[in-house]
Amino acid sequence: MAELGLASRREADEWIAKGWVRVDGEIVSELGSRVGPHQRITVDPAARQAQAQRVTILLHKPVGYVSGQAEDGYQPASVLVRAENRWRGDRSGIRWHPAHARGLAPAGRLDIDSVGLLVLTQDGRIARQLIGEDSEIEKEYLVRVRYDRPGRLPDVFPAEKLKLLRHGLHLDGHALRPAQVSWQNDDQLRFVLTEGRKRQIRRMCEAVGLKVVGLKRVRIGRVRLGDLPPGQWRYLQPDESF
């Protein structure tokens, strides 16, 4: 069901437990049941209705908050999802309900020292779309850096090292996917990645002698951070998609 994009694995488990899933017209009651390629999976409308009520939040994460569970005394970014922090520019038309702040999971990392667009969702399909192993959704970052040689960075930073940032680095024993990396201005790089290993950009920069002094995620797929102020959030609009 997850591979077909019908639901997340957790949702599928819940639906099967509630008797909302049928294979070739027969209710499936056992988790992990095998389904052949020519068999037909159908889902009760009640499951679709429950899925439609799940929300996705776009948050401008400030420095000092972790993306997921609280750690080392730092609060998770989800604590900012309160009625008073909702951006006045939210045009989604969705009415706030306290239940929207429960069960939110981050769809991608943004470390404690980084800022920008963080997606928090109750919808497992969106989480899979953004962070599944086969995801190719682009994430765009603006990264302020320092280098140990004086002068204008685009002039003094070696071209071969910039080429290495684009393709050829390894992290944790894995070759990184090709990335788009270019100079945005005298001390800022623009990165576009299709993967998200832990502290990936910081570690990539360290590997070529750059020190990251500021990192901001400004886009995920077709969804941009835009004018969303730091510490505020909005709903993903019904007509938006990553």
Rank of each mutant, 00 (worst) to 15 (best):
D134C: 03
D113V: 05
G116R: 00
R102P: 02
L110D: 03
L130K: 11
I126G: 09
L110W: 02
A101K: 10
S114R: 06
E133I: 01
Q129N: 13
L118S: 13
L120C: 09
L110P: 07
S135L: 12
G116P: 13
L120A: 10
V115Q: 15
G116I: 03
L104E: 01
T121S: 10
D134E: 14
L104Q: 01
I126S: 07
D134V: 05
Q122R: 06
V115I: 13
A99M: 10
V119Q: 08
R128L: 08
Q122I: 01
T121M: 02
D111M: 04
D113G: 14
V115K: 14
G108H: 01
L130D: 14
L120P: 01
R128N: 14
V115W: 07
G103D: 10
S135N: 14
R125A: 08
H97C: 12
R125D: 10
I131M: 11
D111Y: 09
H97M: 05
A107K: 14
P98F: 05
E133C: 11
L120H: 00
H100E: 06
A99V: 13
G103H: 10
L120V: 07
G124D: 04
D123K: 00
I112K: 12
R102Y: 02
L104H: 03
L104N: 00
L117W: 09
T121E: 05
V119F: 03
S114H: 03
A127Y: 01
D134P: 05
T121K: 03
V115Y: 09
G116M: 11
G108R: 05
R128C: 03
Q129F: 02
R128A: 15
I131L: 08
L130S: 11
A127W: 02
G124V: 01
V119P: 00
T121V: 04
D134I: 13
T121P: 00
G116N: 05
A101E: 15
V115P: 03
R102W: 12
E133T: 10
S135V: 05
R128Q: 15
H100M: 08
I112C: 11
H97I: 00
G132H: 06
L130A: 09
I131Y: 08
A107D: 06
A105Q: 08
I126T: 06
Q122W: 05
L120Q: 03
R102Q: 15
P98W: 12
E133L: 14
L117Q: 00
V119A: 08
Q129S: 11
L120R: 04
D113Q: 11
A107C: 07
G124S: 02
L110C: 06
P106V: 01
H97K: 13
D123A: 04
E133H: 15
D111R: 10
A105T: 07
G108M: 02
Q122K: 06
G116K: 01
Q122Y: 06
L104M: 00
T121Y: 06
H97Q: 14
V115G: 04
G116S: 12
W96A: 06
W96V: 08
D134Y: 07
G132K: 08
S114D: 05
S135Q: 15
R109L: 06
